[in-house]
């Protein structure tokens, strides 16, 4: 068990190092001159050359990469070209927003998908099953940004229950929660549609196993059998998909935050790319990568927690 953890953590660190290299060099290969963006097209070539030198853009790439990694390890991602403040401060301000949105969307996804998927499996071949399958087919087909617009029209414009966008800040917790309901729903519906199908087929497969018959022969209630005996045995494929969906969710927040004018990392990365703000974009892409790799690690550890038989195998 312990050697396995050490191996996994070493792999985790190696992955992050590789990701950071890819992020850095791809960003620096992109065409476009940050100095031109910062100073504007009216600037002189001399001024731009001076700025490039000051920003260290003329140094050899490997040297710049090493400096960047050294800074990143200490939490220093440099200065944003656009905002003229440390990138770390920008991220810190907006992380709570995106993290809350992502966690809320993921929780909603899992809750919706498990309820719908288990219900569909339990009513296999009957109307409830068909209804869930049809609804999930529609859910898969709808892009999140389009669903966002529909949700805004219905709940913000017609019914006026929820704000159409914007964020009142964390000092107003009720307002903050209300502002997140529509974006989290828009993100969750598509993901839940996929996950509900995975859940349904995983649960159906487990329902045919012998221990379900044993539980039935004990006279246990059907609902108890489904949630206590069947679902835990169906969790491995479900958790796998949840892990993959988390990466979708990260990219999904970029779109959704722009649709709903939420001041999160997604909007920040959008602005950063538009303005060739290299330090900002590098840091954000690295952060998203860290999030995805971390979730994958958590998923792998979750397998061990779900199934005690695996503990003996990982050594």
């Amino acid at each position: 068990m312990a050697p396995y953890l050490i191996r996994r953590l070493a792999g985790f660190a190696a992955t992050l190092l590789a990701v950071s290299a890819v992020v850095f060099f791809v960003m620096n290969l992109l065409p476009g001159d940050p100095a031109l963006v910062i100073l504007g097209i009216d600037s002189t070539e001399d001024a731009r050359a001076a700025l490039r030198a000051q920003l260290g853009l003329d140094d050899p790439p490997l040297l710049r990469y090493a400096a960047w990694v050294r800074g990143a390890l200490g939490g220093d991602f440099g200065q944003s070209y656009m905002f003229k403040v440390p990138v770390a401060d920008l991220i810190r301000e907006r992380l709570a927003m995106t993290l809350t949105l992502a966690v809320a969307a993921m929780a909603l996804t899992v809750a919706l998908a498990l309820a719908a998927g288990v219900y569909a499996a339990a009513s296999h071949g009957r109307a409830g099953d068909w209804a869930v399958m049809a609804a999930s087919q529609v859910g898969i087909a709808i892009p999140a940004f389009w669903l966002s617009i529909l949700l805004v029209i219905l709940f913000a414009v017609v019914l006026r229950w929820l704000p159409p966008g914007g964020f009142p800040g964390w000092d107003d917790p009720a307002g903050a929660a209300r502002a997140l309901i529509l974006p989290a729903t828009a993100l969750a519906v598509v993901q839940a549609a996929v996950l509900a199908r995975v859940t349904r087929s995983a649960v159906l497969e487990v329902m045919g196993q012998d221990f379900v018959r044993t539980a039935t022969a004990q006279g246990l209630p059907r609902r108890r059998i489904l949630w206590r005996h069947v679902l835990p045995n169906a969790l491995v494929p479900i958790v796998t998909i949840v892990g993959l969906q988390f990466a979708n969710l990260v990219t999904g927040t970029i779109v959704i935050e722009n649709v709903f004018y939420l001041p999160g990392l997604g909007r920040l990365v959008f602005q950063g790319i538009a303005n060739r703000d290299l330090p900002l974009v590098q840091a954000l892409v690295l952060l998203f990568a860290v999030a995805v790799v971390t979730v994958n690690l958590i998923v792998d550890l979750a397998y061990l927690w779900i199934d005690p038989r695996l503990k003996g195998r990982v050594g």
Partner: peptide, 8 residues
Amino acid sequence: LSALNPLI
């Protein structure tokens, strides 16, 4: 083996 729930 299969008649007992492996996770319980």
